[in-house]
Design a protein around this nucleic acid. Structure first.
Lengths: 218, 218
DNA sequence: CTGAATCCGACACGATACTG
DNA sequence: CAGTATCGTGTCGGATTCAG
């Protein structure tokens, strides 16, 4: 791999980029940070990658000790997961998310795939880096997308975290669809104000108001 | 720019990579983080880049609002410096340095250019992230490379920082050359022990011992 | 259906030389 | 000093095909 990715520098940043600077590599890591995934899961999340390049990148990452391939006998799928070196890349992905939120986000374009997991991952980073206002007290928000997909966002008083599935003790339940939520989150603040179409809030009135103050305020 | 760097994801990390994911971009930012540089400075630091691609990347970064080009009338040189968005990339570069130090460093290869500034930048990151032992008290180390190049590394009790030039109040003066220092820092710990050839320590005996404990211990 | 491999074309990039 | 110009190679996208 990486015949052209050769910087000839004695520099840790250059070395890192030689290893994970190819196209798609860091986005594969981003998806595997949520947990082990199958080849076809990655194919779906990465959206516009071709199977050929997903295969190539996974081989590279495996060789670099970042990804572990788990192909068990008598099972159709192959699972991929991060090694410790792979999990150590989380700060890199997170710093890219922080910069992207501040300097490069825009509403989703027509052909752009919007995954709810990715939105929630960005939300957690934005909240923990205090790029959005914080509620005063611990709170649990459940996001429902259609009938079969739900995520829980929880603030324990110190940090925010996201969890797959709907938590029972939700203070507020938000129902929407990923595209709509993406558009709301990237709307310029002067276009905000009040409850947008395609998003409904249920639950404790005061907690719902608090949610609105964080996300829907002008 | 970036016709092929198009991920079609609604994702902040993917957006960031669309902007600064091309080859060389982040290394140009790395060098500009030290301060404004001329075209030829960058050409020298980036070592194996060609003028054509340095021009292309600088134009891209300028268009992306990361770099500002400063060409004044009646002056031969053109200076490049980071905008605020560019300086906001420091955490990205730093996270790459941290990962690289832990997972990808090795002694410099034959054709590899070793810049003292880059070594010192890596040292500051490694010390501040506590990847190396810390002295108990504030200390100032001056590194001399040959007769005309010197850097000061200072610990104020809280954080480490690097400064160009030799500080007067040095507790310890280290004399070496960049290649030698690079080899020492990347040597496996079982090959360390005592003072290596090609490196001399001067100054307060106890402070020199302390330096040795951080860098030269087995 | 999953996890690939193959062929082809576009363009990103490297190497070298040259210019204002 | 700060770039252009030219030419060759490598990386990647797109489509199709293939084995378990």
């Amino acid at each position: 791999m990486a015949k052209t990715k050769d910087y000839k520098h004695f520099c840790a940043a250059a070395r890192s980029l030689e290893v994970i600077g190819e196209k798609w590599s860091l986005l594969i890591v981003r998806d595997l940070l949520r947990g082990p995934q199958r080849f076809s899961d990655l194919l779906r999340y990465l959206n516009s990658i071709t199977p050929k390049w997903l295969t190539a990148r996974l081989r590279d990452l495996e060789e670099a000790g970042i990804v572990k391939r788990d192909a068990q006998e008598g099972r159709r799928e192959v699972w991929y997961e991060l090694t410790e070196a792979g999990r150590d890349l989380e700060p890199v992905v997170e710093s890219l998310v922080v910069w992207g939120i501040k300097h490069a986000m825009r509403p989703p374009l027509p052909g752009e795939r919007v995954h709810s997991d990715i939105i929630l991952q960005g939300l957690v980073v934005a909240l923990n880096r205090r790029l959005l206002a914080w509620p005063d007290n611990p709170v649990t928000w459940v996001f429902r997308f259609g009938s079969d997909e739900a995520h829980t966002l929880r603030f324990d008083g110190q940090l925010w975290s996201a969890h797959p599935g709907a938590d029972d003790g939700a203070d507020v339940v938000i129902e929407s669809d990923p595209e709509r939520l993406a558009n709301i989150l990237t709307a310029p603040s002067d276009e905000r104000g009040g409850l947008p179409e395609g998003l409904t809030l249920k639950g404790d009135t005061q907690k719902a108001t608090e949610f609105g103050a964080v996300f829907l305020a002008g």
